[in-house]
Simulated scan of single mutants.
Amino acid sequence: MKIYMAPLNEEQLDKKKRERKEQIMRAALKVFADNGVKLTKISMIAKEAKVSHGLVYHYFDSKDEILYESIEYGMQENMVEQFFNDLNDSRRTPLEKIKQFTRFAFKESDTGISNMVFRIVQQLNVVNGLPDHIHELVENAGKFYIEALTPLFLDGQKRGEIIQGDTEELLGVYLTVLSSIMADDPSFWRENLEWKVEILLRMISIR
């Protein structure tokens, strides 16, 4: 006896397409974060998403389009914003919050989308020749991190935890170091992570 499944209606089809596209974008974020944009191939994204190479092209025309929409998806889903909301709601001191953020920056990609977006944005900060629309998206994402971290640095300076001086410049140095590490070999930093994070924070903290 054969069992016939009722065909999906238009709403169900649209939902299934959205879910499949999100599946590919989540996989893309992980692959971009782990391998860097230049080394990432469509086939790697398809493998991570557990879909066919051709299906990826059904939803996206190019690797640049996947990159753009994936970053946009990660930012718009408020996953990055939620990380900072949770961080600010905690009872940690400003320096402890910056330490938590630094630790988060070097975690493996499976810790969440917010971590992947940050790592990709930091990698792209040192890449030349990005298409204008991707450059603008990365710039806007970078501004978000600056706006989110600036109050922590200001509060840390006020409490005497962080060295005095131009807050914007100090934060710029901190993020430039993170960007350079992300573009080089973040896997190195995951070994003895706590010790390396402590060393990194010494450049901004009062000891």
Rank of each mutant, 00 (worst) to 15 (best):
K47P: 00
A183I: 02
K41V: 03
Q100S: 15
S109P: 08
Y73P: 08
F153Q: 08
Q23Y: 00
Q76E: 11
I98M: 11
M79I: 02
F32K: 06
A183G: 14
L29W: 00
V173R: 09
N140T: 08
V56T: 00
P186K: 07
L87F: 05
A46I: 02
R18G: 09
M5S: 15
S187Q: 11
V117L: 03
S205Q: 15
F84N: 13
E139Y: 04
S62Q: 06
L154Y: 01
K196T: 02
N78D: 13
A105F: 05
Y59A: 13
F153R: 08
G54Q: 13
M203K: 10
P151R: 12
I42C: 04
L13E: 15
E81D: 13
K196E: 03
I134F: 02
R190G: 13
R91H: 12
P186V: 06
E69S: 11
P7Q: 15
N192V: 00
D166Y: 01
I120K: 04
K41F: 01
E136P: 02
I162T: 06
N115Y: 00
K99C: 05
E72A: 09
V126H: 11
E96A: 14
I199K: 14
P151I: 10
Y57A: 05
I206C: 14
L175H: 06
M75G: 05
G129M: 05
L8D: 12
G165S: 10
S180K: 09
V51H: 01
F60Q: 00
R20Y: 01
F84E: 08
E19P: 09
D155Q: 10
V197E: 04
E77S: 15
M25I: 05
I66L: 08
D155S: 14
I206L: 14
M1P: 14
L178D: 03
K38N: 07
W189I: 10
T111C: 12
E65H: 06
I71Q: 00
V51Q: 00
V56H: 00
I3P: 02
I71E: 00
F118D: 03
R119H: 03
K16A: 15
G36P: 05
E72M: 07
F101L: 14
Y68N: 07
L171G: 08
E19N: 13
R18A: 14
N78R: 13
P131Q: 07
V121L: 08
Y4N: 15
I163M: 13
V138C: 03
G36V: 05
I24N: 07
S90K: 11
K15S: 12
N85K: 12
L137M: 07
K17D: 11
K143T: 08
D14K: 15
Y73H: 14
L29E: 00
L154P: 00
I3R: 12
A49G: 04
N192F: 05
G142E: 07
D61L: 02
N115T: 06
H135D: 12
A27K: 03
T102F: 01
M44R: 06
K107Q: 11
K41T: 09
E136R: 13
F32W: 03
A6E: 13
A6K: 15
K17S: 10
T111L: 07
N85T: 05
